[in-house]
């Protein structure tokens, strides 16, 4: 085709401003894409309801005094079936940013991997860190590229993205819709099947609690997150609660100027324990939890 030893013009353009997706297209391994057409309900082929594909459920994030807290339960479901009770829905992308996922894990984990690798590729090839704006847009683009699958009902992902913006010295929190629009959040965001409960809890705490979410210290914030997830687990079968025997606790991560901290199980176990002791023991919910 082009016999010039200097390569084609396309090659020159690609090497000047390489993008990790372009690299994958050249070396193989680019994520598959589906045409953007909806499958009509009841059509032969793929069923539209959630019954056959694994879904990860409830995630939440809110800003507190030191940064952003991001938490997720551990359950993945397919219809009425609990597929997995140790799913990790809060995924670290790099030292200062993470993504929490609700939706189809197959797509979401691949998106997280794609983001992680593209940010690193950018840093290594361009000798500078990608800007906050660039990182936020990168996830947006992945969602838009996934639109075909989303419309066929097989790859819907509705993520949250939290990061510490080093340039502005501010914590940032965004949520996305299925088509990839990003919305920056001032207080809190939740996604997944248990999100109505979580939203109600966070809204209540923010508006009527002792102080707004943004003023909470780390301990208060962690307690609120655990209570919100607990409430969601009570109201939504697809949200997993705490399994003390299996020592399965929600995943809680804090994003701040220090980077990302993952709270160890022991801290979460203690927080639950303290919470139980500080409340009256005669309510149905609490006795059940305590027995568990």
């Amino acid at each position: 085709m082009n016999t010039s030893p200097f390569g084609s013009r396309d090659e020159a353009a690609a090497s000047a401003l390489p993008d990790f997706a372009d690299v994958l297209r050249r070396y193989g391994g680019a994520p598959p894409q589906a045409p953007v057409t909806a499958v009509p309900a009841g059509a032969a082929g793929l069923p539209l309801d959630a019954g056959f594909s694994t879904r990860a459920t409830t995630i939440l994030a809110f800003k507190f005094r030191d940064g952003v807290l991001v938490a997720g339960d551990r359950r993945a479901t397919a219809g009425n079936l609990v597929v997995y009770d140790r799913a990790d829905k809060v995924l670290e992308i790099d030292r200062y940013s993470l993504m929490a996922i609700a939706g189809v894990p197959a797509t979401a984990w691949e998106m997280a991997r794609m983001l992680e690798h593209s940010f690193q590729f950018y840093r290594r090839s361009q000798l500078q860190e990608m800007s906050m704006e660039g990182k936020v847009r990168a996830l947006s683009r992945l969602l838009r590229e996934n639109l075909g699958f989303a419309m066929q009902g097989v790859g819907v992902v509705v993520p949250l993205f939290a990061a510490y913006d080093e340039a502005a010295a501010l914590p940032r929190l965004y949520f996305y819709d299925v088509m990839g629009a990003q919305f920056e959040v001032t207080d809190f965001a939740a996604s997944g099947s248990g999100s109505p409960s979580v939203r109600a809890v966070l809204q209540y705490a923010n508006a009527y609690g002792p102080h707004p979410l943004g003023k909470m210290d780390e301990e208060e914030a962690v307690l609120l997150a655990l209570r919100a997830l607990d409430t969601a687990a009570q109201n939504d079968t697809a949200t997993g609660g705490v399994d003390r025997h299996g020592r399965i606790y929600p995943v809680v991560k804090l994003v701040s100027s220090r980077g990302i901290d993952t709270l160890p199980e022991t801290i979460l176990a203690k927080a639950y324990q303290r919470d139980l002791q500080s409340l009256p023991k005669n309510t149905l919910i609490l006795t059940e939890t305590a027995a568990g």
Binding site: L24, G29, H117, R124, S125
Partner: peptide, 17 residues
């Protein structure tokens, strides 16, 4: 620069795939 990019691309693609 060309060799550096080539090395980074090959390593990154392998690391992802």
């Amino acid at each position: 620069e060309r060799l550096r990019m080539s090395a980074i691309e090959v390593a990154s693609a392998e690391g992802f795939n």
